[in-house]
Design a protein around this nucleic acid. Structure first.
Lengths: 352, 352
DNA sequence: ATGAAAGCGCTAACAT
DNA sequence: ATGTTAGCGCTTTCAT
C-alpha cells in the first residue's frame, strides 16, 4: 500500500540539506547529532510525512519490528484476553503483531511456527498442543517464549495451576464435598496435566474422592458432553478444565432439569468475563490472562535485547503467575447436599 | 529470528552453478527457465533450506506479502469467526496476517490504519466505528476492503441486515407478537443502523409496534443493562443487536425470574456458536461470518491484482451476503402470551 | 535461456 | 558532528 509516492530518507536529506546518514542518526540516535540540525531534519521529515521503510531497515538490521503470537483458538475468551495483553505490550514497544490461530490442531503449530519465524523477531507460543520434541525441532531455539507450557531450557510464562486447583478443592472440601469430578481438557494440554496433578495432591491432602472424567475438547460442547457423566459419577461437585467447558456443563445440566448448585456444584477455571454473568455465576480459578500476555512480551523483548547473552549461559527466564479462586455471590457452588445444614464441619479429611 | 545463517539466493546460485537471476526466475517465473536447470536450482534450494527473504523481495517489488485486519473486539465470538475466515483465506494465498483489535474505540481504528498501512499490501477493516469522513481521510484510498460498512466509492463486503430483520419481525408477527422491542447496538455501528431501518420497515409492513431501546454496548453487559427496560416496555418479544447482547438479556431475565419465552421472547443476531447451546437456545439471524472474511480477502486480492485498473474507472467492487433466520428447536421465542392458544392467526397486520 | 549489473531504502562502518 | 561508502537479499532491466 503506501501513499502515491512515499518520501524516502533521501528526500528528507535533500530537504534538510544534510546527508542520509545524518537523517538516519537524527531519527534513531538523536544524541549523536547537533540539536540544531536535528531540528531541521525533524521538521523536514514531518513536513514530507516521512516514515522509514521497515523492510529496508529490517534488511540491514536483521530485525523486523514484528512479533508473532500463536494460540489454539481465538474464539475461546481465555485466548482473546491473552491476545489483548500481548497486543497491548507489543504496541507499547512499537512492535506489530502477527496473530495465528491453530484451531486446536497441533500440526498447525509447527507449520505456523516455521512460517512465522522468518518474519518476526520473536514469538509467543501460547498453550501449544504439540509434544516437546516436535516443538524443539523447529526454529524454537530462537526467541520463542512459551505460555502455559514449560519445556526444559526454554523461556516460559506459566501460572500456578496446581495451587489454583488446591484452592478449589479446599473450598469444596470445606463445604463438605467428599466426591469431586474433574472434567479434563485436552490430553495434549500442559495446563491440564498440571491441573490434574494439583487436583490429585489436594484431593489426597483433604481426603476427598476425585473422579477423573475422560478428555474433552476445551469447548462448550465438551462440557455439554461431560455433564451426564459428571452426574452419573456420584460427585457432588464438578471442576471443569475451563470456564467454557463449565458453561457447557451448566447448560446441559439445566436442560436436564438438574438444579445447580443444589444438586451439584460446578466450578470453572480461567475467569473469563462471562463466568461472572451467568446465572448462577461461576465460581472459578482466576488466571491473569492479560498480564500473562504482557509478561510474555516483556520476556521476549528482554531476550531480544540481550541477544547473545542467553547463549553465553545466562539462565533461562521463567515467570510463574499466581492463580486465585474467585467465589461469586450467587454461584454455582454450594455446600454438599448432605451437608446443607451441617455448617460445613467435615469430620473426614482435614483442610491440611 | 531466522536460523543460524539463513541461506541466501547467492548460496543457492553457487550450489546450483548458475547465477542469482536464474535462481530468482526458477523460483518465481518457472516457464522462463530450462526445465533441467530449474530442477537443479530447486534441488539446491531445498537442500539448503532456502527461503526467500521477504523483506528484500518487498523492498524491490513494493509488496510485503502481508495483509492487515482490524476488528472492534476480538473477544466477541462474531469477530473471532470473521478472523478465522480472513485467516484461512490469507493463508491459502500465502499471505501473513496482522490482526489488530481496537477495543471498540473509534480513534484506535484510524491510528491502526495509519500504522498498518505501510506494512501490508491491503487491509480488511471490519465493522469500523469511525465516521466516514475520518476513514476516508486516512490512507484508505488504497487497498482497503470494508466489512459490515458501506462507504460511497469504497470496496466493501456486507450482509443483508435489513432482510434479516424482516425475517425476524415476520416470524414474530406470525407468532402473534404485536409489540417488539429492539435493543440497539452502538450508535456508530453501520450494521446497527441497517438493522434499525429494516426493523422499522418490517414493523410497518406487518403492523407491529416497535420499541427502540437506547444504544447499548454490544456486549453481554449491554444485554444485562437492557433487560429491565425491555420488560417494562410492554413488548412481548425483544430483538437484540447481537447474540452476545441477547445472552445478556437472557441472563438478567433469568435472574429476575422472568420465564423466557413464556413471558417474553428473545431473539439474537449473528448466530455465534454459543447461541445454539444455551438453554433456551437463541433463535437468531445467522450471518455468514467466515465466508464474509473470505470474501473480503478475495476482494482485496483481486484489487491488488488489478492494481491500476481500479483507478482507471473500473467499478468499485461490492458484495452483499445473505442473512438467514435460524429458528431453534427449544428456543427463546414463543407465540405471544395472549396468543398462545390462538394458533397464530393475527387479525391485525398482514404478513405481506 | 542465462548472466551481469543496477538499485529498492536504509544503516553502519569508515572517514573526515 | 557530519559526509562518504558499502552493502543487506532480492528482482529486474539489459545484454548476451
Amino acid at each position: 500500500m503506501g501513499d502515491a509516492v512515499a518520501a524516502t530518507i533521501r528526500d528528507v536529506a535533500t530537504a534538510a540539506g544534510v546527508s542520509q546518514s545524518t537523517v538516519s542518526r537524527a531519527l534513531s540516535i538523536p544524541e549523536l547529532v547537533n540539536p540544531a540540525t536535528r531540528a531541521r531534519v525533524l521538521a523536514a521529515a514531518r513536513q514530507l510525512g516521512y516514515q522509514p521503510n521497515r523492510a529496508a531497515r529490517g534488511l540491514i538490521t536483521g530485525r523486523t519490528g514484528n512479533l508473532g503470537l500463536i494460540v489454539p483458538d481465538l474464539s475461546n475468551p481465555f485466548f482473546s484476553s491473552v491476545v489483548k495483553g500481548v497486543q497491548a505490550a507489543a504496541r507499547t514497544s512499537d512492535y506489530s503483531l502477527f496473530i495465528a490461530d491453530t484451531d486446536e490442531e497441533a500440526s498447525a503449530e509447527v507449520e505456523l511456527l516455521r512460517a512465522l519465524t522468518k518474519q518476526v523477531d520473536g514469538i509467543v507460543l501460547c498453550s501449544p498442543r504439540s509434544p516437546d520434541t516436535e516443538l524443539v525441532e523447529v526454529g524454537l531455539d530462537d526467541a520463542v517464549v512459551l505460555m502455559n507450557r514449560r519445556i526444559d531450557g526454554r523461556p516460559s510464562v506459566t501460572v500456578d495451576n496446581a495451587d489454583g486447583m488446591r484452592q478449589a478443592v479446599e473450598h469444596l472440601a470445606a463445604l463438605g464435598h467428599e466426591r469431586i469430578a474433574y472434567v479434563a481438557g485436552p490430553r495434549t494440554s500442559w495446563s491440564n496435566g498440571q491441573r490434574e496433578q494439583g487436583l490429585h495432591q489436594s484431593a489426597d491432602a483433604t481426603g476427598t474422592d476425585l473422579v477423573h472424567l475422560g478428555h474433552f475438547p476445551p469447548q462448550f460442547e465438551g462440557g455439554v458432553a461431560a455433564a451426564d457423566l459428571a452426574l452419573a459419577s456420584g460427585a457432588t461437585a464438578v471442576i471443569a478444565y475451563n470456564d467454557v467447558v463449565a458453561l457447557g456443563l451448566l447448560s446441559r445440566l439445566g436442560m436436564r432439569g438438574v438444579p445447580v448448585p443444589d444438586q451439584i456444584s460446578v466450578l470453572g477455571c480461567d475467569d473469563i468475563g462471562m463466568s461472572a454473568m451467568t446465572h448462577p455465576a461461576l465460581t472459578t480459578v482466576s488466571i491473569p490472562k492479560r498480564e500473562g500476555g504482557r509478561a510474555a512480551v516483556a520476556m521476549l523483548l528482554s531476550l531480544l535485547r540481550d541477544g547473545g547473552a542467553a547463549a553465553a549461559g545466562a539462565s533461562v527466564p521463567h515467570r510463574e503467575l499466581p492463580t486465585q479462586l474467585i467465589v461469586r455471590a450467587t454461584t454455582g457452588v454450594a455446600p454438599a447436599p448432605d451437608r446443607r445444614t451441617a455448617g460445613g464441619h467435615s469430620t473426614k479429611g482435614s483442610t491440611r
